[in-house]
C-alpha cells in the first residue's frame, strides 16, 4: 500500500473527506450525523456545508439505486460499492463533491443524455423542470422520483461534470459537482 502517494493525492486535490466502500443508508446516516457536523464546525460556512450534503446524499442514493452491483438486504435495504470525495478546489475556490461507481453498460447513454440536457438549462429552467417532474410521475420509480440530478444541478454553482471510465470490461461513472 503506497500511503505517501495517497496522501499526496489527497493534499493536491484538497480533499476534506474521502470514503471508498459500501454505500448504504447506514453510511448516509453517518455522513449526515457525524461528518456534516464536524465539517460544519471546521469550515464555519453553514450554507456551503448544507449544499455539500444535499448533493452528497443525492449522488449516494443514486449509487444505491443505479449501480451494477447492488446488494439487497432484509427490509429492501440497498448497498453498492462506491467512492465519495469532498474537497476544496483551490483554483476555483469552490467546494466539490465527487462520486464514482460501477454502472451497467446500457446506462451510459441514459446518464450522459440526462446530464447534458440538465446542463443545457439555466437555473430557472432547471427549477421549472424539477417542478414539472415533481408534479408528474414521469420518472418516478419504486425508490425515488428520478430527479436527484436536477436537484444537484439546481444547487451547484457550476455545470455538472461527468466522465466514463472503462476498466477491465467494467464501466465506471464519475460525477462532480461544485458549490
Amino acid at each position: 500500500m503506497n500511503i505517501p502517494v495517497v496522501r499526496q493525492v489527497m493534499e493536491d486535490e484538497g480533499i476534506l473527506f474521502s470514503f471508498s466502500g459500501m454505500i448504504s443508508q447506514h453510511f448516509t446516516e453517518f455522513l449526515m450525523d457525524k461528518v456534516r457536523v464536524q465539517l460544519a464546525e471546521e469550515l464555519n460556512d453553514r450554507n456551503s456545508v448544507k449544499s455539500i450534503f444535499v448533493i452528497s446524499i443525492e449522488l449516494l442514493q443514486n449509487i444505491m439505486s443505479y449501480s451494477k452491483d447492488i446488494h439487497i438486504k432484509k427490509g429492501n435495504r440497498h448497498s453498492s460499492p462506491g467512492i465519495l470525495l469532498v474537497g476544496f478546489d483551490n483554483n476555483r475556490e469552490k467546494y466539490y463533491i465527487n462520486t464514482c461507481n460501477e454502472i451497467e453498460l446500457c446506462d451510459r447513454e441514459k446518464l450522459s443524455s440526462k446530464i447534458d440536457y440538465i446542463n443545457s438549462l439555466d437555473k430557472k429552467e432547471q427549477k421549472a423542470l424539477l417542478r414539472q417532474k415533481l408534479r408528474s410521475a414521469e420518472d418516478t420509480h419504486d425508490r425515488g422520483a428520478g430527479v436527484g440530478l436536477i436537484e444537484v444541478a439546481k444547487i451547484s454553482t457550476e455545470k455538472i461534470e461527468y466522465a466514463f471510465e472503462n476498466s477491465n470490461k467494467n464501466l465506471f461513472f464519475h460525477i462532480k459537482a461544485y458549490v
Partner: peptide
C-alpha cells in the same frame, strides 16, 4: 431541516 429529492416528491 433537510429533505432529499424523493421526499420532496
Amino acid at each position: 431541516t433537510y429533505l432529499n429529492s424523493s421526499s420532496l416528491k
